[in-house]
Design a protein around this nucleic acid. Structure first.
Lengths: 339, 339
DNA sequence: GAGCGCTATACATACGTATTCAAGACGCTA
DNA sequence: TAGCGTCTTGAATACGTATGTATAGCGCTC
């Protein structure tokens, strides 16, 4: 039954050549005559031969595999950030197009992920996705650099030039979202963010928010700022706390769609209508357009982001150097911010 | 500079033993003395040694890697079924717990996926997820069986006993959803499904729907049935077509949440309120509870499903035999179906 | 016609591990 | 003390590929 899988020797025997010739023929070496190549290809086709990934990876010193690390402390039953999820399909496709496989994994901040993947030669490089507190994993990033591991990170390039990063133009996104609200006549715009120095993206969005306000002659006030992790529940709580603190706001800019959706729920629960109180989010996850009212948000193109991430990583692997990329964002206006 | 990565020979030298002993010590062979094992482990730790996956995979004849195939004709920019996405995290985690890595891939129906993964020894087995028309890929499934490839499929076990499957109790789900609507006093319940023999899950849900109706003394009518792929847009169109055909319905049971959400939008657009016209979905994707009103739906537990999928596949790989599993479902009542 | 360059192929080997087989050390029994 | 079993280790080897080096064939020049 189930016979042994064919090796390059089997192909060689059928094609009447040596094993090395088979290898060369299949990998497109120019030193193989057309006639020979044809015979080899035919034999390979006939036996359904595929190069053994393990043997090949052992001989060359790479695997043509990338590892995708969701780099966050993921509680047992929590949801993955939907924006990252929307990156997944495009990343897989891009990898395939570039001849790579994609390994996927979640990693606790506490684990030894930084040595596992490259050291065991499972992957040639790593894509890091994480919305956790950056300061917590920065030391591991440094160790990665130290060991010469290739990696690329989705995040913010402004957070200390460590490794290659691909990011959205967060400052501009914050600026456009806020400007849009100002144009709608809003003046008291709450900012729902995430606190601390560990979230550079949020800080950049906050800077854009401030710039827009100042351009309109308004000085940003701290009482309009409240923190919420990217989850429906925290967004809801953030608005509840604003209301109970008696803060008088007429619009909300939340730095994540999930929080924005939670915010809308809290508003509606409090008897406030949207867009009477206008809401703008950030990300443009699928649920944003399904929400009611559909959510105005800063759109990050997941296809573009995914491709930039993969391309940057592959470039780092293959040519040793990679450049940071900042991707443009675009405001998508829906009913949550305009009457 | 980046020095050569350590091999088991390096560890052997430090620990003062031979390479085979290192291999045995690390893989937990009982024939290594405690003292020796300690020395080996210490040396490995010191050099940050990790077993080379390629060499190991070549020597043994498996890779301890599973491949996840989103098995569908995925148009360039379409979204992945959110339910599958919610399976992802739990699957990855389960794989890690069982000592496997997970490769992820999308495959066109037309591609040679069925030979690629196992033949090139990238993976020891395959998880197949797909909501495409089953009849289209059935021949490939047969080829997979023929070649002795290990795989498990999310779907319906009733569709022809080919390979191992893990599925929800679709018939029961359809029954409970419909019974719930009947208890709310609904009598004219539209069924939004997906057509043809290629979707056994949908057929099972339809059977549950019929059983519930008949139990209430109602004979199902074809005019209440309309087809829609699992997408917001098609769900919306389905309701529009019901309305424009003048069908008088007072509730909707849609076999996917995304279609159900689209249906709610169409209702609201037509000036009909939900839950005045009650809506029930299937899946319980994250967006279901975020919709407005929050969607009543048949909940499939993604953690349980993911674990069943992985466990079944690993069992098939390691012991050669695997059993189909049917997972229970549970109705989650939210505001879209009750006043 | 000897020497040269070029093409196409073969030979030999290395990648790093896991396993089979053999053997050494040791304690125990008769 | 010879013999035997147990426990632990080492030597040898195979997994399947890719590549550096060598070689054979051939057409060409001077």
């Amino acid at each position: 039954m189930m016979q042994r899988r064919p090796t390059s020797f089997d192909i060689a025997a059928i094609a009447g050549v040596s094993q090395p010739t088979v290898s060369r023929a299949l990998s497109g070496s120019p030193s193989v005559s057309e006639e020979t190549r044809r015979r080899v290809l035919a034999a390979a086709e006939q036996l359904n031969y595929k190069v053994d990934k393990n043997a090949s990876g052992l001989r060359r010193q790479h695997t043509k595999t990338l590892a995708l690390l969701f780099f966050e402390e993921l509680p047992e039953h929590s949801e993955i950030n939907p924006f990252y999820l929307s990156l997944l399909g495009p990343m897989v496709r891009r990898c395939a197009d570039r001849g790579y496989d994609l390994l996927i994994s979640f990693q606790q901040l506490s684990s030894d992920w930084h040595v596992d993947y490259e050291d065991s030669r499972k992957a040639d490089g790593i894509v890091l996705l994480g919305y956790g507190n950056y300061l917590q994993y920065r030391p591991k990033l440094e160790k990665l650099v130290e060991r010469g591991t290739h990696f690329v990170r989705w995040g913010s390039e402004g957070d200390g030039e460590i490794g290659a990063t691909v990011s959205s133009d967060n400052e501009q996104g914050g600026f456009e979202a806020t400007t849009h609200l100002l144009r709608q006549g809003r003046r008291r715009i709450a900012f729902i963010g995430t606190g601390g120095a560990g979230f550079p993206e949020v800080q950049e969005r906050w800077r854009g928010y401030c710039r827009a306000l100042r351009a309109a002659g308004i000085e940003p006030e701290d009482r309009f700022r409240v923190d919420a992790a990217p989850s429906e529940c925290e967004g809801r709580a953030a608005v509840a706390s604003l209301i109970s603190a008696g803060i008088d706001f007429d619009a909300i800019f939340a730095v994540s769609d999930v929080a924005a959706i939670g915010a809308m729920h809290a508003l509606q629960q409090a008897g406030l209508s949207v867009p009477e109180t206008a809401v703008v989010g950030f990300d443009d996850i699928p649920a944003a357009s399904l929400a009611s009212p559909p959510l105005t948000t800063v759109t990050q193109d997941p296809h573009r982001a995914a491709e930039a991430l993969i391309d940057t990583l592959i470039q780092s692997i293959e040519s040793g150097a990679a450049e940071d990329q900042v991707l443009p964002v675009r405001l998508t206006v829906r009913e949550s911010s305009v009457p």
